[in-house]
């Protein structure tokens, strides 16, 4: 199959997935227990007040009508108006998306070179001392959940030693990069383990494959054999995993955002759920669905390009 044809096929599938998710999101938020008006009324559940809130939010309109209206707006890129702020959601979410995007880009730009290098180092001598050391560290680090690592790093480096700011409270992330050090360490910890392990495995497989041996027999050796011939094939599964990591990062890693006070998309989603701000929940779900579909589409295309014959394209 040619790349353009493959791309078109995947794009159509992606569009269908987004449309399906949008519908599911709407239906699910409809059937959540307790309607939004009751939640907003909180501990002042005066029936007249609940009725007024319901009318104000158009919750007294039929669900089908609201669904069609919402879908129409969505097609125009209009994510709607927040129940809480009564302001357009798109504007308010831009800053959250910015923080999340910054963290994701920084994490990925450190992750890829670091993890691939570590994986290749480990693959140099299978079962050697370096390989075993790196494997042990990777497995141990992978076993530590993000929040535990975050709390530990904050307690030691932020509060006890005072070397790094424990939170990003009120600081501009770009102008004070020191606040990003601890969050980045936490975000990198587990992905580095998975990506480096996958790189190692892929490299070992590629190095043992017939075509690399053949290339070696032809006299191609050293870095050229490793980087030019073995690595592209080894990276195909790595790209798939990277897509998952990217997806995870772009969805906003709520634990990291919460403890380090970086208000990104994860925080926005938690806040929206807590205040039962249904339009914002819906908008975020659709946004995150679009991100997931796009990232996976990109990953599939890259994997296809890297190794068209290895079946990664499915």
């Amino acid at each position: 199959m040619s790349l353009p044809r493959y791309a078109a096929q995947r794009l159509l599938l992606g569009l269908g997935q987004v449309a399906g998710i949008a519908t599911i999101v709407f239906v699910l938020t409809e059937v959540l227990p307790g309607d939004a008006a009751v939640v907003i009324a909180g501990d002042q559940p005066d029936p007249a007040r609940i009725a007024a809130i319901r009318a104000q939010l158009d919750l007294d309109q039929p669900a089908v009508q609201r669904y069609l209206h919402w879908l129409g707006d969505l097609l125009h890129g209009d994510l709607g108006v927040s129940l809480v702020s009564q302001q357009p959601i798109t504007e308010r979410l831009a800053a959250s998306a910015g923080a999340t995007l910054l963290l994701a880009v920084l994490t990925l730009s450190l992750l890829v070179p670091l993890a691939v290098t570590v994986g290749m180092l480990a693959a140099r001598r299978e079962g050697g001392l370096l390989d075993r050391t790196l494997s042990t560290v990777a497995v141990a680090l992978y076993a530590v959940p993000e929040f535990a690592l975050a709390v530990l790093l904050i307690a030691v480096f932020g509060v006890q030693l005072g070397w790094l700011p424990p939170t990003a409270f009120g600081t501009d992330l770009i102008s004070r990069p020191a606040v990003l050090v601890l969050p980045l360490l936490v975000l990198l910890a587990r992905p580095i383990c998975t990506i480096s392990r996958l790189t190692r495995a892929g490299m070992l497989e590629a190095l043992n494959s017939e075509y690399v041996r053949h290339a070696a027999r032809l006299g191609i050796g050293g870095p050229r054999l490793w980087l030019g011939h073995a690595l592209p094939n080894a990276l195909a599964p790595v790209v798939q995993q990277l897509a998952r990591t990217t997806d995870w990062l772009l969805g906003g890693v709520i634990v990291v955002e919460a403890v380090f006070v970086i208000p990104g998309l994860g925080t926005a989603l938690v806040d929206a759920v807590a205040t039962r701000d249904v339009p914002t929940i819906q908008a975020l779900c659709v946004l995150i669905a679009v991100i997931t579909v796009t990232v996976n589409l990109g990953a599939d295309l890259i994997a296809f390009r890297l190794a068209p014959r290895t079946g990664a394209a499915r």
């Binding site: 939170t167 009120g170 938690v270």
Partner: peptide, 21 residues
């Protein structure tokens, strides 16, 4: 007067201990 937001009590306290707030 600057209001800063975190719903995580531990983050508010950590920031206070480190002199960030």
């Amino acid at each position: 007067l600057e209001y800063l937001i975190s719903n995580e009590e531990s983050a508010r306290v950590n920031a206070l201990l480190a002199g960030q707030v």
